[in-house]
Design a protein around this nucleic acid. Structure first.
Lengths: 230, 230
DNA sequence: TATAAAAGTTAGATTAATCTAACAATTTTT
DNA sequence: AAAAATTGTTAGATTAATCTAACTTTTATA
């Protein structure tokens, strides 16, 4: 049975090498920053995980997940996202409150519990942040996604998901921008990417830091990769 | 913030000095047996808890809870019993499966979460084992329940409640045993707990699986914890 | 390519929770 | 009340996860 700590390492590795996907491997320093520990600590820990066949690693080399490690990491993320969904849809927590609580709940191991929860929630596909929930087998269908920073000016899009970061969520709350809301880009400044958006009866100017973290689909067809002419 | 371990010590102390209530204090050995650790470990730990003002203790003396320690311990039990209720009534776990899972869930600290859960479950008074759930303030309003499996032979009792499980109710229907009916135990087999009861104009032999799920009060005084002589 | 910077490792220390083994205090029994 | 039994404590060791500080390897740059 894995410890909380080991599970957190695997989760971070999935996030860095599967979701962020610019590389399937990652350095010790990068991992240390992510987990908010010192590189020395990571050095020790990845050796331990290697001895358990959960990561590939050798001295001075990069770290990557074995298929077993990947599965274990995926299951932590599955649990996290299912609990988030529960907290939001059943207990009425707002989407910026659920993350922290799920950080604890994700370490409750019972597979039976998590599958029952999945059923109770009626097999949700996405968590309250719009991220896909891995299935029983740890598989995740990474849908093609497009961010607010990429879309065409003037074409109406709907917010489908937000990257799972508390600051983003809180900022969106502050400007009253919500999941499933329609938005249109009025203007995008070439110089610094500053973007003017309208939604509901509001207009806001926001930075790329925000737009890069918000996923959208076409309001017409509901797809990120749409072919609507308009 | 208390560690899992510290919380488990407080929980055990509540069980030994509040619920079991033959004494408000307990020895190091007894506590060690309960927690399945060595006395040496308990010795160290209670000194630590004393330094945090959670227990009263001095060298070679007995251990008892301070009011702060009692409250903290009660809250662990509140969380445990609410999670048990959730697992049973929402996720369909049977009452003998819930305990182990609740042992993990009880250590999720958020007060907001547990109060929301309480509300979601519609403020249950008892967990699936029939044990009372402490309220927000750590108080237990209806502390006492007794099941048919515990009562004295020959003394008349009245059925006050039944654990919320359809099978139990269906079985009771079949043998014509009803809520508010008077019953008397004629005989209880020491070997396997098989019990002979009389009620109305019937006599039935039933197993502990049934008697453990039926709550009773004294027919004379109407209380579970009665002091009637006969 | 030599050197500086960045990245990674090792050794030794710390903290929490546990153990064993030896010892000390208290309680019970004769 | 002395001996025996029980109960509790202390000292020293262990394991997991972390740290700091010193060191080494790899990578980038002048």
């Amino acid at each position: 049975m894995l410890s909380f700590t080991e599970e957190n390492y695997l989760k971070a590795l999935v996030e860095l090498t599967v979701f962020d996907a610019d590389s399937e491997e990652v350095g010790v320093n990068r991992l240390a920053t992510c987990l908010d520990v010192k590189p020395a600590t990571v050095s020790d820990m990845v050796r331990k995980l290697r001895d358990k066949s959960l990561v590939n690693y050798e001295k001075y080399g990069k770290v990557s997940l074995t298929s077993e490690g990947r599965l274990k990491g995926m299951m932590v993320i599955r649990r996290h996202r299912l609990w988030e969904t529960f907290l939001s849809s059943k207990l009425g927590f707002s989407w910026d409150e659920v993350h922290e609580l799920a950080e604890e709940l994700e370490h409750i191991h019972s597979e039976k519990l998590i599958n029952r929860l999945d059923e109770f929630l009626d097999f949700p596909e996405f968590d309250p942040h719009g991220d896909a929930i891995p299935n029983k087998k740890g598989e995740i269908l990474l849908p093609f996604r497009k961010t607010l920073s990429e879309i065409e000016i003037g074409k109406r899009h709907r917010i489908s998901a937000v990257r799972d970061q508390t600051e983003v969520l809180q900022y969106m709350d502050r400007i009253e921008l919500k999941i499933n809301q329609d938005v249109t880009i009025e203007h995008r400044e070439a110089f610094d990417g500053l973007t003017t958006l309208t939604y509901g009866n509001r207009t806001s100017v926001v930075s790329p830091k925000l737009t890069e973290n918000i996923f959208v689909v076409c309001s017409e067809c509901g797809k990120a990769k749409c072919t609507c002419t308009k």
